[in-house]
Structures are given as C-alpha cells and as structure tokens.
Design a protein around this nucleic acid. Structure first.
Lengths: 200, 200, 200, 200
DNA sequence: AATGAATGAGTGTTCATTCAT
DNA sequence: CATGAATGAACACTCATTCAT
C-alpha cells in the first residue's frame, strides 16, 4: 500500500516519538513523585513532562500504571543486584546486604513504601510488581541463608518483604524514627534458629 | 428559680445531651474510619452519626481532634493494661504480651496504624497521643526486660513503638501478610543480647 | 449574679434585667461592628455581650434592627447638635459645621456609611432611621442657608444627605482618599447661587 | 506574539473557541454582577454562561480577575472617549462631559461603583484598574481646566475620581436619590476658584 | 496521536436561624 | 425568658477524566 513508500516509514518514526514521550512521562512522574508524593495531581505530571494530560492517560490509563512503570527498572536493578554478590560472605550477610539495599531504595523514593501498602484501589498493580520482581530474589536469599544454618526457615519471604517495606514508612515524616535499626532488629530475629517463641 | 444554686438544673441536662451527641460522633467516626479510612469526608461522619455537619465541627474543629478523640479511650486502656500484670512472668514475657495487645488494638482498628504514620499535616496530634500515652509504658517494659537481662538495652522505645505500628500496616489490605509473625521476629531480635550489628 | 441581690417583684425585676441585657447587646454590637464590620457573625456579637444567641434574636430579630438600635442614640445626638448652635454664624457656616459633624460620625463608625447605602435586603430600616432622624435637621439647615442667600435652594436635603454619606465611603479602605475635601467641594458647590450649570 | 507567524494551525482554532468561552464568561459575569452583585456565587456565573465552574476558574483564577476583566473594555472605552473631544468647548465643559460619561458608566453597571470601593480583600485589583485607566485621563482634564482658569487647582484627581464613584452608589437602591445632581454640585464646587475653605 | 479546555462531582468550611431544655 | 447546641443550605475550590480539535 501507500504506507510502504513513505521513506522513513511513519510507523517507525512514530514509535520512536511515542517512546520518547513515554520516557519523558516516566522522568517527569519520577520527579513529581519525589516532590509531591505518589498522589500528585495528574496535571502536575503532565506539566513537568511538557506533554498534555491526554498523553499521560493514553500511556498510563491508571495512576498505578504510571507508578509501576516509574519504578519498574529500579525494581529490576534491585532484583539484579544480588546476581552480583561479593566475595566471601555468608548467605546471611548477603541477605542483610540485599535487604539494606532494598531499604535504600524505599527510603530514597519518597512515599514509595507508603504506596506499596496503599489500600487505595488500583494499587495492587504496584504491590504485584514488588511481589513479582522482588519476592523470588528475597525468597532465594532467605532459603540460602536458612540452608546454611544461619537463619530460621519458618519465615516467608512475602511477610518479610512487606515487613521491611513497612518498617520504612515514616522515615521522612518522623525524623526521630530510626527505621534502619528496626530493620536490623528484624534481621536479628531471623537468626534465632530455635523458634520456641511462637509458643502455642 | 433553681438555676442559681442548683447546677444539675437545665444546664446539666443539656450537657448530658451534648455528651450523648459527642459519643454518637465518636462512634460514628470510629465506624467511618474503619469503613472509609481516616480521610473520610466529614459529611460521611455526620451522616453516620445522624447529626448535622455543623455539630461535627462544633465538637471537633479539626479532623485530627476527632481522630485523637476516637482513640483516646482505647489508648488509655492500652496504657493501663500493663498496670495489671499477671502472675509469674519474665519481664520479657510481659513485654511480649503488651506488644501483642498493642497489635490487637492496631489490627482491630482498621487504618489506625496507617493514620498514626500519616504525613498529613495536622496529624501530629494523633502521633503525639500515641507518644504521650504509650511510650512511657513501652519504655518501662523495655527497660525492665533489659534490666532482667532478657533483652538488649540499645533499642529505643520510640523506634520500637513506631516499628510495631508499622508492621501492622496492610493487614487487611493484604490478607496473606502475617503481621503477627513479623512482630514476633522483631521481638526475637530484641533477645539477641550481643548486638554484633554495626554500632550506628 | 444579679439574681442574688435583688429579691423584690419578679415583674419589675425582669424588666430591668431585660433592659440591662439589651444594653449589653447594644454595647457589644457597637464594639463588634467597629471591630469586624456591620456584617459580623451574630455569634460574635452574642459572645461579646456574654449572652446567648437566642437572646440576640429575641431582642433584635433582624440584624438591621440591631444596627439601627446601636446607632439610634448617636443619631439623636447628631440631630440635637444643631439645636445648640454657636454664637454668630451665617446659616451656611452652621450647615457646614453640622455636615462635618455628620461626617465625623460616619467616619468614626467603621462601615456605617457603607451600611447606610447597603442594598442588602432589610437595611431599609437603617436608611429610614437616617431619613427620619437627620433629614429634618438637614432640611432645616439647608433652607435657612438658602433663605439667607448663602446657598442655592434647588438642592434637596435627601440627595445631599446621601451624597455626604456616600462621600465618606472608603475612608478606611483607601487611606489616600480625602473624603473631607470632597465634602467641602460639595459644600462649595452649594454656594453657587446661580444654577446656570444645569444646562438643559 | 506567536499568533502572528503561525495562526492557522490547529491551535488557532482551539484558541478561537477558548476566546468565545472567555467572552461567554465575561458576558455572563457582567449579567450576574448586575443581577446579584459583585459577590455572586461562582456557580451562578458558570450557570449563566452555560459553562462549567472549572472553566470559570481556569480563565479567572480569582474573582477579582473576573471583575477586572468584565470592565476592562468599558474602562478602556471610557479612557479613550476624551481623545475625541467635541468642537469648541471650554476645558471645564470637556471635564463635565467626561465626568457625566463616567457616571453613565457607573450607573449603568449596577454595583460597579460599590465594587470599586469594596473593602473585600483582593479587590485592590479592581481599584487599581480604575486608577490606572481613568486617573491619567481625569488628571489631564482637571489640569487643563485649572490651567484655563475655569476651576481650582487644589483638587486631586484621585479624590475626585473616588468621590464621583461614591456619589453614584445607591442609585438603584434608592430611586429617589438623584446622584446626577450631586455630581453637578461637586463639579460646581470645582469652579470656586477662590477656595475660602479651610486649608487642610 | 497529542492536546489541553471543559466538566462537575466531591469536599471543607461558615454561619444564619431554629428550638429543646 | 435565656441558652447555645444543632442544623443544613450555601459557597469556594480542586482535580480526575473526557473529548472536540
């Protein structure tokens, strides 16, 4: 058809434009999320991106879609991090390092931890993203540590992931709250290999 | 008439109505907070209470005032609970029991934990209420346990309180999340008397 | 308070109490009108008076009633002022003095001039009060001045009264506006005995 | 600006709609201001215009913005009017004509005079508009008349402008009030070249 | 495909007025 | 009579979402 002779193919061209716009939106959203939180008005994101509001909706029909997209590659990086473990560490130490890395991530992204636990309808997507990306990694780390006898085996990665995320909530709101210490406490609790604590 | 010397006169009667209404509001707010969260429209609370909106504002000019009031009793009860300790327990067990009681409280009141960590301006009041009421108790429990050699002494009650609160977030949103287990993990971490953790 | 020391006759007693309350309300309203303007919330007046809102409504069902009452005696004083004219003045000078006295009154009472011209429904009462009290006096002064050949005779007291009132509007709002000068201009215009100006 | 070089694009068409809507809003606001005064609910203006409330806010974030916009054209016309003086008139006659034109304007626009003197916060804008647009013209006219010996020179245009505006207040509210006569009186006062009035 | 103007439901807040005590 | 708590209409303002251009 006539679409064939158009030299640089409007299709290819457009696709690249579309991608560029998507990237603009992601960058803008990331900036706005940091500045105004995860609930910032759509308008603000559109303005930051230099694009129209309609474009935002075209690319990310739901706010959660945008949030997920914004953090997808950072989550991927986090998931990949462990793939490059350091020299001689116990599996527990690897786990600790990874968890603190996770905390770094959450604490840096203003409001992400809150968002991850938001009960706002439509944020399952974000939650799922965390589960899909991070859970396998954390599960592997926990199993390895348990297999090495460093930690107990009766802690589910899912609980642990949410717990770590939870403990990061309020870091900015309450400057006196030392989340990192509580994370360590949780990690310490993991090392009690004899869970007689559960009582019943 | 008797209005001069007899206080329980018409003034007193009116006061009782006012109190009843205040209670209605507290009950309604509690219900609405559970149903729609801490940020529920004032209108909804008024409707639930069967009273007018103006009445809500008269009694609780600020939303935070209402939130604080809603939970004040329960916080007081929680603070008092330890005053009636059981027979022969280690201080650590007393601590554990109290913490789980705290968790009971938070988990029951849908969204309270979230509210406690809200960064919404004006919710310092709620946070302060927790700090004022609960912190002294928790601090005492922690010290007693540490003094008895059951637990480490380098954990601040403030951090611990917020941590426990945080760990309760999402219990309803994510049914698979077992907050109680994570609380236990945190409590376990407390028993590691030799903190090989990094100092800072 | 007063219920304790005055035993006799509930009838006489009550009337005096009622009057005292009315006076309290008038004083309070006067203070509040100065502080917050003629449109101040009824509540504020009740609070200032130390009485209940219902009492305000009982005594002055309409806000205008209250406004009128507040200024009634001042209006009376203003009307009476000319009754005590000074020594040897031309009728025009008497008129001038009285007008400036009127201006003093209006300027002092924050917002009174505005209220006098308010198109708010229910403020005819205030307007009427001005008309009833002041118009006869001003009319007499104008006629005397005209009769003495000082000023023209074709100016109606009603127009003149409203004009003077109007010219006082904005004195506080716009500090640069020198109402007094404009009043003088108006008075000067009065002295042009040959009204060829009207043209047609 | 940019409309000059690339007007016919898609943006141009939209812009025309936007302009039409803005005009609708201006017309509606003008009508509503007449009907319900300058403080009419935004909703009423929106309804009158047939547009949504959001649109009102988009175009005129502040009520004062709207008020100013509503009268900007007419103020401009009024300012320009004198630029086309008639044949052989004394400067004083020119001044008179202009002032009556001003009065025409104020009297026609129900409530404008009131608005001009509103002490409502945020209405400096309207006042400023009057000052910026009209004051230079009136000042010129006054100076010319004074220079020609027709009128005194010690009257500030600012005072005079506010005075004229003030005198127009209440024209509709009090049908018996003949503002025009008082304006003439003021203008007459201007011709008294020997101000025996007290200096201050 | 992109734009951003338009929409209007939703929410907070105030205050005149009523009425049970 | 006095009280002041209760009421709810009224209004300002925001922002998610749609859709004509």
């Amino acid at each position: 058809m006539s679409t064939a002779d158009a030299p640089p193919a409007s299709g290819g061209r457009k696709r690249s434009d579309v991608r560029r716009n998507e990237q603009k939106l992601l960058d803008a959203a990331a900036a706005v999320f940091v500045r105004s939180g995860i609930d910032a008005p759509v308008r603000e994101i559109a303005a930051e991106s230099g694009l129209g509001m309609g474009t935002v909706y075209r690319h990310f029909p739901t706010r959660a879609d945008l949030v997920v997209a914004v953090f997808r590659h950072q989550l991927a990086a986090l998931a990949a991090f462990v793939d490059d473990p350091e020299d001689a560490e116990t599996p527990y130490e690897v786990l600790r390092r990874w968890v603190h890395r996770f905390v770094d991530f959450l604490v840096t992204k203003h409001g992400l931890a809150e968002a991850m636990h938001s009960d706002q309808a439509g944020f399952e997507a974000l939650h799922n993203e965390f589960v899909e990306r991070l859970l396998p990694v954390l599960d592997r780390l926990l199993r390895a540590s348990a297999a090495a006898g460093c930690t107990r085996a009766d802690v589910r990665a899912y609980d642990f992931m949410l717990a770590v995320g939870n403990l990061c909530i309020g870091v900015e709101t309450f400057p006196d709250y030392r989340a990192r210490r509580m994370i360590d406490l949780l990690l310490d609790g993991l090392t009690l290999t004899d869970p007689e604590v559960e009582g019943a």
